[in-house]
Nucleic acid binder design. Structure first.
Length: 924
RNA sequence: GCGGAUAUGGCGAAAUUGGUAGACGCGCUAGAUUUAGGAUCUGGUGCCGCAAGGCGUGGGGGUUCGAGUCCCUUUAUCCGCACCA
């Protein structure tokens, strides 16, 4: 029996690929391109565990396959290197984040290197924290700063076009995304001081400064984006988050809401991710309209998706932050309402989430119903109405909305039925079915028609119009942290100015300490010599958030060394968009939405030619850890094997899975782990061994269940690891890591080896002409593997390889013509192994330069085959047909077997159903 | 509450999209061989049954000659969003 020395072979070929630059991209654009990308990793201190490579291996297989199939393939891998954990670590240890990040990157590279991933070598050193890289992150920020969103044109444009508009027309005829209140003429604009003009422009720039209530996390000393806050606590660390007004950079992403929504339809993404983005954008159609306050000149503007229910409105609710409150509240209620609004504003997100009790106050004010003469509607304030959505005020229709209903019940307010036959004695009727009643001119209409009619009536009366609202908020783009990109911005007289592009990159200064500055400012605020420029201007002390560098990195990979631009436009036109993007679903709304947003801006501004970055997206399921638990008798230092704990009072303790095999704990090793914590413990065994129980949970350091891919490579080799990770199950499913079955993949490789070689590792392959059966085996495999890779169904590919191998063994295949193409098919999955055999077969060039075998359907066809015969759908035996039923127009004679004949009993079948290549069914 | 998904042997999972359910692997099992080991090879392995045969894709109903696949209904689990008017 031959032997495959995987350790030596793998090292050999990894070295070979590196030296020959086998997977460097080819800028020859005459070939069709294929861009396959992984979400680049954040190099954490824990290193990779076996869950990480899942997606990397999948893209590697696709990349190698596409190369064999004749594509010009780009398969890069850089690092998302700015971020919070490195900075937290720096605060704790004083080590500079650049140092730890560099060390972590090297660990990752070593681990990835072992797996034999075919990356373009120039990209593997790309890091978002490298000045050559973040120079362009800053540059892109400047482009965004220098632009405004022209709604009339439906795109972002350079700020100069806005200035031109102001010079010619003032604010007249402008349809822009902005937060400027007021208007001016061209003459007024021209007479303004530059500073005043600059100030106004700030209200139009897509990157703008806002003093907004933000998610402030005192423990982390920073502000977090909405998607970094989970259930009122920080996603990282789980610290409480409160609301605090702060000077922040933000983007007018809301301008892109419709395009971000519409763009989804063109993308081959999973329904779940598309749906998550749709929900996040939260488009809803309805109407904005006004209610006239009694005894005031002001009106209350509300947004409603159900303007048809206007006759069911029995009270109004303003958000506690609503500015009108102060004016309208009656004297006798003033103190009460003020107390309420103060209380509610100070409530943290956590409190709001946790105790959803119904609270609110009556303001004493009333509005007039616009259509029902003489109807007065009381105005309340309550915190179930959010200031940040719609107009911050609603008309409450308890009959049609559950929250309004609960509020009305709680405070004893009127509930007016408006849908015919709806039972509203217990709950609101929220369905959009039914006909309107008690609604004047809407009576008898169904909901859809009534909505249209109501909007029409509001418009005719001049008090409202149809309106689309979005849940999407403008994302915050500031962090009060050190380890991120500095802004290319300085302040003069309190106003922000862009630095010229010639001054990029704005380098991150080296600091000694990482504690926040005063008032929650970032650590950079403490670096006086950096903050203050000779001309008296002051730098921005914030840095950019983690998603800055990752929002455009896919545009850099095909031109990583470009010092003139973030990437060459011709190269971009050729390589973009990403044909296949693979990564975890945790980025469903964060990274994936920001990347789309940046791409659209760069597209609008003419810097790139694609306005969607990722054509096809596949979400890999998380590989979960299989934690091992040992059980300690409570209050003692005695541990019991799993079979002995029944009925005992025990504590389950995580134990490192690396010293447990098949749930059996290695007692010698456990005594020396964790600094000898268990050195003196007593372990009670059963049947001579100590058994652990297990549970499935997230893989990570803290559960002692992380498995290092390098350890697996040491033991089984990279090719086995690759095959096994793919064999584990569908890519997109979450699955626990278990090594049950890895032996099977290992054995499979050895079996393949033995197809080619004898006991002395000598080739036994001959030039014999392959038989029809051997060719059928091969061609069935070609088509299956091809289809599987296109569908990313790698688990079934591995199964097919094994099947081929079993069949070849059975057929005693030794023919080179049958075995060599198989090796090419296998090579994307087990590249080192296949390279080695390929070389042994006498090939001079790498197998990665071979051509994918061509499938020949003729080889799979058969001349005679048994078909099952069914009567009324029940299997009743077999018939042999001496013709290929997979072809059309084949006359077949059905020879009824005795049992079939007995069932038919002389009757002629009413119908004979022949499914080509499948089955014959007689219907009697 | 809303949205997305999933449910198939002892286990991980297949099923050409309506056509012989359980490919492939693990495990188990019988045998062969061996320098007797957790190695290798061969056969068996959905369940019940000695067998013929029957039953089987979370539960219930339906369409069809034929349903894991389509429709209705119900249950369970996972994920995402969550006072969004």
């Amino acid at each position: 029996m031959g032997n495959f020395e995987f350790q030596a072979v793998e090292a050999k070929w990894q070295q070979y690929w590196k030296e020959k630059r086998s997977f460097a991209i080819d800028q020859n654009t005459s070939k069709p391109k294929y861009y396959v990308l992984d979400m680049f990793p954040y190099p954490s201190g824990a290193g990779l565990h076996v869950g990480h490579p899942l997606g990397f291996i999948a893209t590697d297989i696709v990349a190698r396959y596409k190369k064999l199939a004749g594509y010009n393939v780009l398969h890069p891998m850089g690092f998302d290197a700015f971020g919070l954990p490195a900075e937290q670590y720096a605060i704790e240890t004083g080590q500079h984040p650049a140092v730890t990040t560099e060390a972590n990157v090297r660990t990752f590279q070593a681990q990835l290197g072992r797996i034999g991933l075919a990356y373009d070598p120039d990209t593997t050193n790309m890091r978002t924290c490298d000045p050559d890289y973040y120079k362009w992150t800053q540059w892109i920020f400047l482009q965004i700063f220098h632009s405004w969103y022209n709604r009339a044109a439906g795109k972002a444009q350079h700020i100069d076009t806005l200035i031109a508009h102001f010079e010619g027309n003032g604010t007249q005829g402008l349809d822009a995304q902005h937060d400027f209140e007021g208007s001016f003429t061209a003459a007024e604009w021209q007479s303004m001081a530059p500073k005043q003009q600059h100030k106004i422009l700030l209200h139009y720039r897509i990157a703008y400064i806002a003093y907004t209530e933000v998610n402030w996390c005192p423990a982390l000393g920073t502000v977090l984006a909405n998607d970094e806050v989970v259930n009122g606590v920080s996603e990282r660390g789980g610290h409480p988050v409160v609301r605090k007004p702060m000077r922040q950079w933000a983007f007018r992403m809301r301008a892109y809401a419709d395009r971000l929504l519409a763009g989804l339809d063109q993308l081959q993404w999973s329904d779940s991710i598309k749906e998550q983005q749709r929900n996040w954008i939260g488009r809803s159609e309805g109407a904005n309209f006004f209610f006239q306050l009694e005894g005031h000149t002001e009106r209350i503007e509300v947004f409603s998706t159900r303007p048809d229910t206007i006759f069911g409105a029995t009270f109004m609710v303003l958000a506690p932050e609503h500015p009108l409150l102060e004016q309208i509240v009656t004297a006798d209620r003033k103190a009460d309402v003020l107390e309420y609004t103060t209380w509610s504003k100070n409530r943290s997100e956590v409190e709001r989430q946790q105790e959803k009790k119904i609270t609110g106050r009556f303001t004493g004010a009333y509005v007039a119903h616009p259509f029902a003469q003489g109807r007065k509607i009381p105005v309340w304030t309550a915190d179930y109405v959010l200031w940040g959505y719609g107009t911050g005020a609603i008309m409450a229709v308890p009959a049609g909305d559950g929250r309004d209903y609960a509020f009305a019940k709680h405070f004893g307010l009127e509930i007016l039925p408006i849908i015919e036959g709806a039972d509203i004695s217990e709950e609101a009727h929220e369905s959009k079915e039914g006909k309107l009643i008690n609604s004047d001119f809407l009576d008898g209409l169904d909901v859809k028609a009534a909505v249209r009619r109501a909007i029409q009536a509001l418009q005719e009366k001049g008090i409202g119009e149809g309106r689309v609202n979005y849940r999407l908020r403008d994302p915050n783009f500031s962090r009060q942290r050190y380890w991120g990109e500095p802004f290319p911005i300085v302040f003069r007289d309190g106003l922000p100015y862009a630095l010229p592009e010639s001054e990029l990159p704005v380098l991150l200064p080296v600091v000694e300490r990482y504690e926040p500055g005063e008032e929650g400012e970032g650590p950079l605020a403490n670096v006086a010599e950096w903050m203050h420029l000779p001309d008296g201007s002051v730098r921005e002390s914030n840095t950019m958030p983690g998603y800055a560098g990752s929002s455009w990195y896919f545009l850099r990979y095909f031109d990583v060394k470009n010092a003139q631009a973030f990437s060459d436009k011709d190269k971009e036109a050729y390589w973009m968009d990403v044909d296949l993007y693979v990564g975890g679903s945790e980025h469903a709304v964060g990274h994936l939405l920001y990347s789309r947003f940046w791409t659209k801006i760069l597209y609008d501004l003419g810097h790139i030619t694609h306005d969607e970055p990722f054509k096809k997206l596949v979400n890999i399921g998380m590989i979960q850890g299989r934690s091992s638990l040992m059980h300690r008798l409570r209050g003692t230092n005695t541990f019991l094997s799993a079979g002995l704990i029944d009925g005992k009072d025990v504590d389950a303790i995580h134990v490192d899975v690396n010293i447990v095999e098949q749930d059996i704990l290695d007692l010698d090793k456990v005594r020396v782990t964790r600094g000898g914590e268990y050195a003196d413990a007593e372990f009670i065994t059963e049947d001579g061994v100590f058994k652990c129980t297990y549970q499935v949970e997230k893989m990570g350091k803290r559960y002692f269940n992380a498995v290092n891919p390098t350890d697996v490579c040491d033991r089984y080799g990279a090719d086995t690891l690759r095959l096994y990770e793919m064999f584990l199950g569908p890519l997109e499913d979450a699955k626990p890591w278990s090594t049950h079955g890895i032996e099977g993949c290992f054995r499979f490789l050895r079996k393949v080896w033995n197809l080619f070689t004898n006991e002395d590792n000598a080739l036994i392959v001959t030039d014999a002409v392959p038989t029809a059966d051997e060719l059928r085996n091969l061609h069935q495999t070609i088509i299956k593997i091809q289809d599987d890779i296109e569908a990313l169904s790698f688990n079934t590919s591995v199964a097919q390889f094994m099947k081929f191998c079993n069949e070849a063994q059975r057929l005693k295949t030794v023919s080179r013509a049958a075995l060599e193409p198989f090796l090419i098919l296998l090579s994307p999955f087990a590249p080192h192994f296949c390279e080695e055999l390929w070389e042994m077969l006498g090939h001079k060039a790498s197998i990665s330069a071979a051509a994918w075998p061509i499938y020949d359907a003729q080889r799979v066809a058969v001349s005679s085959i048994d078909y099952p015969i069914q009567v009324n759908g029940k299997l009743r035996g077999k018939i042999t047909v001496a013709a290929d039923m997979s072809k059309e127009d084949v006359e077949i004679e059905v020879m009824a077997s005795p049992e079939v004949a007995a069932i038919l009993a002389g009757a002629t079948p009413k119908k004979v159903i022949v499914v080509p290549g499948r089955i014959v069914n007689l219907v009697v």
